[in-house]
Each structure stands twice: as C-alpha cells, then as structure tokens.
Design a protein around this nucleic acid. Structure first.
Lengths: 331, 331
DNA sequence: TTGTAAGCGTTATCAT
DNA sequence: ATGATAACGCTTACAA
C-alpha cells in the first residue's frame, strides 16, 4: 500500500479510501491512485482488512457431509445468493465426527455469520454462538436461541402422503428411516403417525431405522418385508432409501406397487426414471439456501445495531407431493 | 487475550504460545492458561492470526456452478481431505459471469492457495496468481504456468467407447456435447475423432453442440436424429445430456438401443436406472478432489521454501468404461 | 521458561 | 480533500 501511495504521490490513507470506495476523494486523485494500483498490481489484503474492519465478508455453512443431492442443492442456492450479496462462503462438513463443536467455534472466528444445518450443532452451542454475537441462521432444524430459521414443511406432507397410501387401501405401512438422524426425518415420522391416528388406525410404534443411503434402505426394507405380516407399503424418509427399497423388493420377487407400494422424499432426478416412477415429496432445495443466505445477510447487517429484540422469524417453505407410479396410482 | 493473560497471571506472549501449541512452555503454565481461556470463553481471532502469520489455513476452490453431481462430487473429496489437513474451504462459483477474474483475485487474498476448475480461469490469470506467489492446483484442465494439475483421462476412453460403438456396426455416430465448454468435453471430442480415423472412417466435422444439461441434450439429440441420414448412435458428453437424448428418442418413437444407441459420461446414479441402463464412463470424482487438495497442501508447505523448480506433476486419473444396455450390449 | 515490544497491512479518527 | 497516526488482535524475535 505504501508503494502505491508513493507512486501516486498520496498517503496510504487516500489509497485506502480510493480502494475502499470512499466517495470523498477528488476524482482526479481517484484515477491517479487506481492507475498506480494497477501499475503495481496491488490488491488489498483480506486478513488485514478483516482485522481492521471486523468484517470478513464471508459466511460459514456447517453441514454433515456433501454426499447425495440434498446438501449440494441447498448449498448451490446459498452460494449463489451469498455471492450476489458480496459474501464468500466457507464450507465445513462435520462428517459425523465428535470434535465438530471445536470446528464450528473456530470457523466462527473467520466469518461474519453462519448457517447451521440440522443436527450438526447442538442447541447449547447455538446459544453460545449467539452469545458471542455471531449471527446465526438455522437450517432444517427446530429453532434455538431464537435465531432465524429456515425449513421445509415435513409433518403435514408426510401425513398427507401417508393418508394417500391409506386411501389406496393399505393397512400395514412401514416407515423406513431414522427419526433420530435429523429433525426432518423426525417430523416425517410424526406426520406418518398423525395420519394413522386421524384414520383411527394403529401404526407401528417403531420405524424401520436406517440411514439416508441406498444400501441402508435396502437392508431396512428387506427386514421389513420379511416380517410377518409384511407391510404392503413402505413410506421411505428419502428417495435414496426408496431406491434401496426397490432393490429389496426386486430381490424378494415382489412387484412395485402391486405387492408393495413405495414412496420417497426429495424428488431427486432419478425419481422420474425409476420403474415404476417414484411417488415422492419435492422440497425447494435451492430456495432453502437462498432464504438462509438472505436471512443471514440481514442478521449481519442488523447486527451493526445489535438489535436482539423478538425471536426471529421461522420460514417454513412449502413442499409438494409428487404422485407418480410407485404408490399405486396410474401415472 | 489480555484478559486471559491477566487472569492466568502471565503475558499475552505466553497465552499466544499456549494456544498456538508452542511446546516450550512449562506444563503448569499451560494448564493455568488453558483453564483461564476456558473460564473467559476465549478464542484466537482468525483475522488477526492470518495477518500475523500470513497463513489463513484456508484454501479456495473456483468452479463454474454447483448444479449436477459432478462438481459436488469433486468438492466432496476436496473438502474432506482439506479438513483432514487442517484447512477450511472457501468456495466460489463463477456462474459464467464476466467479472470472475476479479472474484478470483480477491479470493486469492483470503486463502493460502487455490484449486481452479476447467475454464473458470484463463491461462494468464493462472500465471498472474503464480507470479503473486499464490499456490495453485489446476483441475480438469490443461496445465498452465507449470502448476500441479489433476485430471481424469478422457481422450483414450472416448476413443475406446467410440470404437465399441463402431464395433456394434454403427456407421453414423454423432457427438453430442460442446467441445468449447470444457477441456474435458474437448478431449472426448478428440478421442471420438481418433477412433473414426483409426477405423478408417469419416466422422462428422462438427459436433452436435449443447451444454451439459438434460434440456439442451434433448434439443441437440432431436436435431441430430431428424437429420438425413440420421445417426444410429449418439456419443453424449455427459450422462445428463444422454438423459435428454433418451427423451428425444422417445419423442421420435425410436427405440434405444435398437434404432439409436446412446452412451453417456460420468456414471451418475441414475445411469443404472435408466431403461435401458446407460453405457457410460465412470470417473473418480471424489478422488479428483482428494488429489487436488493433497497437491495443493504440498505446494503450500513447499511454498515456505519458495522452490519453483521444474514444472509440477500432472496427475491423470484413470476412468472406466461401464458397459450396460444402451450401447446395444445385453447387460 | 517467560516477558517486552515490534511488526503484520488495513481502516478510521482527528487534524489540517 | 488529504495526511498523520493510533488502533485492530495476534505472533515472534530478542532479551532477560
């Protein structure tokens, strides 16, 4: 910076003003400084700026891992919006490791705010972050520390989808997924039970637990379908699990949806290509990210004034049931 | 830090040493400082550290966009490895915008090194970054500025796949994809022509140009299949394009592979579920990322000594042709 | 082993 | 409109 300053015959203060876009600099000076900066190939140093301004122009995202279309889809929207708002995005996968609290706390010192997914961060850590004055937006999880929260609707759609299966005449529907793995899964499990209750029917007390992966879905589905009496429908907590269920049905020589109906969740691209095509629930992945980025940006800007005030908004985005062939409908 | 120092009855230098893991501090002092730090809830400030050490413990990745399984897959491996090596990952999508050079240059001041995908950064910018002493690793693109480079093999596999189609008796094979969009696509186009030449056959002088998306693939395939004489096989530059080709064939009432054979590239999850299942080429996505992260880390460590020296390694990862049904084989 | 003090490269306050 | 200069919060010789 001193180089540019002397090259342009001004002080570093002026260089800083020009490069920082401060309007109160004579136009001629601006041009001269800009020209000098170009000549020397000078760029402001990110770390020094961050230290002096207490602004990183960066937000952090904490998620479990990047496999599967879900997180990538959300982060796609997040990154795009953050960029448009002038912020870089620092990503951090917890990969189910134990020391992730430490990871999050460290990340917090490098960003202006963070987006926290599902179960990656326990409530008390959220509170601690809030206490430290780090703006936080929660994604796909219950609100905590009255932080702004973005989520997709689960319970009602799960209830409706279960009701749809019930309407097809199914009396034994198994829930395949792990309510303990994520708030989303938990809410779908709740909606599933809601529907049974509303129909005056009993539902299994326990889900067929499995992780959000095809292989796990296959195992769980196999287990369920070998039970006596076997379920005639499988409400899977994700499309990937549903794909495993298709495989399981095929192994047992059961036709879908004839002998067993199957539904998924997410509407990932393969859903339309499965045979029969998969009935599922679509959630607006990119928009979840977009909204989170926007809310975080707002919280950061507002943070200047340290508002606090009332518990922040919880935005619940609508999902859409996509009826195709695997539930027993014609489509 | 001063708070912790006085709380523990030491100087900030000692606090810094303890928190920075410097071994030459008496054990008792270490404990005392750690305890004080915990008591006050103190954490080192990222920006200040970065400024003082000239180390961000962060790497940057520049890619076109995050849609589709390709970039997410690579970044999955990248993030995991970088994390294991103690580095955060800053992501930046160019989204085909014009001002991306500026974006990259700015990012460069916030990271210790960067991974640059395909066509996101022109050769001269790569040189400039290298000139500024920013360690760089190139991904899925030709080497430039003799920077370490990681790529998947394309030309030979494309040639072999084309040869396979030729072996099925096809005499008019169209290439569907845009060689201009990425070095990968360009190399596949080259391999396609290699095979024709090797077989003593003429090949179209022009590809059926289209972007890496299903909708574009459909249009391009429609265009190709309506030509007279129509091609009897479509070598698509990606699986997503191939999916579009399936749709096009269906619209024209043409059977696959009977009336038109189709092949893809990437082996994305849907490939196995298409009907007929898609013959394609698998590339090790996560490993591309893993290797890039490792090479970058090495370059950063080496950078301490400012080696320069000989042009760095170009790692070409093997791909695997996955024969399934859409090429005309039984599978 | 620990402390003192000089940076690290900006921004921002106060003068001028 | 511009310039001095004191932060910003840490690391790291150099001393003790």
């Amino acid at each position: 910076m001193y180089t540019v300053a002397s090259h342009a015959g001004v002080s570093i203060a002026t260089v800083s003003r020009v490069l920082g876009g401060d309007p109160r600099v004579r136009e001629g000076t601006v041009d001269r400084v800009l020209e000098s900066a170009r000549a020397v190939g000078y760029r402001l140093n990110g770390a020094a700026r961050a230290l002096a301004t207490r602004r990183h122009d960066t937000i952090g995202v904490v998620f479990p891992n990047l496999s599967g279309p879900y997180y990538a889809g959300v982060i796609l929207g997040l990154e795009e919006t953050a960029n448009a708002l002038g912020q870089s995005v620092l990503i951090a996968g917890t990969h189910g490791r134990p020391g992730s609290d430490e990871l999050v706390l460290e990340l917090a010192t490098k960003v202006d705010g963070m987006v926290l997914f599902g179960r990656t961060v326990p409530d008390d850590l959220v509170s601690e972050l809030a206490g430290r004055g780090v703006p936080v937006v929660l994604l796909a999880r219950p609100q905590a520390a009255s932080a702004p929260t973005v989520r997709a609707e689960n319970r009602r759609s799960a209830g409706a989808l279960t009701g749809h299966l019930l309407g097809h005449g199914h009396e034994r529907i198994a829930f395949v997924g792990d309510p303990g793995s994520s708030p989303d899964a938990d809410e779908r499990w709740t909606g599933y039970r809601d529907a049974h209750r509303a129909a005056g029917m009993g539902a299994p007390a326990e889900p067929d637990v499995c992780a959000f992966r095809e292989a796990d879905g296959r195992h769980a589905a196999l287990r369920a379908l070998r039970r006596a009496p076997a379920p005639t429908a499988l409400l899977c907590a994700s499309d990937e699990i549903a794909m495993g269920a298709y495989a399981a049905a095929a192994e047992l020589g059961m036709s879908v949806p004839g002998e067993v109906a199957i539904t998924g969740w997410d509407d990932i691209p393969v859903a339309r290509f499965l045979s029969p095509s998969l009935t599922t629930v679509r959630q607006p992945l990119a928009e979840l990210g977009t909204r989170a980025a926007a809310l975080l940006h707002a919280a950061i800007e507002a943070g200047e004034g340290e508002g606090e005030g009332a518990p922040a908004e919880v935005a619940t985005l609508a999902t859409e049931i996509v009826i195709r062939g695997s539930c027993g409908c014609d489509a």
